[in-house]
């Protein structure tokens, strides 16, 4: 697996950990690998999620891409099974959209190459 795909794999693993930590009863994951970017979408119809979680996740995922942290954070995320490293995902993606329609949650991420 090349470095870029390793990073995509780490990001998705961290997202899955996050959903499982919030008692998601079903999880759908979709990854589209394109020439210039990769789109990741994760969705659950039934997840334990609060206003506070929403505020937290919005701020963490929208910090903006930082190339300089790419390699370091790639080492960090997905290692632990507790879904605590969302801030690391935030600096590894270019766009993040979060839709919360209680009890369903949908997160879409775009990472440009």
């Amino acid at each position: 697996m090349n470095r870029e795909m390793t990073k995509i794999s780490s990001i998705t693993k961290e997202l899955i950990n996050y959903f499982l930590m919030h008692d998601a009863k079903d999880i759908e994951l979709k990854i589209k690998v394109k020439e210039d970017k990769t789109e990741i979408n994760i969705h659950s119809e039934n997840i334990e999620f609060t206003e506070e979680d929403m505020e937290n996740i919005k701020s963490l995922l929208n910090v903006g891409r930082e190339i300089e942290n790419d390699e370091y954070y790639c080492q960090v995320i997905g290692v632990n099974s507790e879904g605590e490293e969302l801030s690391a995902i935030g600096v590894m993606v270019d766009e993040a959209k979060i839709k919360w329609n209680k009890p369903s949650l949908d997160i879409s991420l775009i990472r440009k190459r």
Partner: peptide, 11 residues
């Protein structure tokens, strides 16, 4: 907790 990706400048 302060694990390896806890950036206080961002948080």
């Amino acid at each position: 907790v302060g694990r390896t990706a806890t950036d206080f400048t961002q948080l």
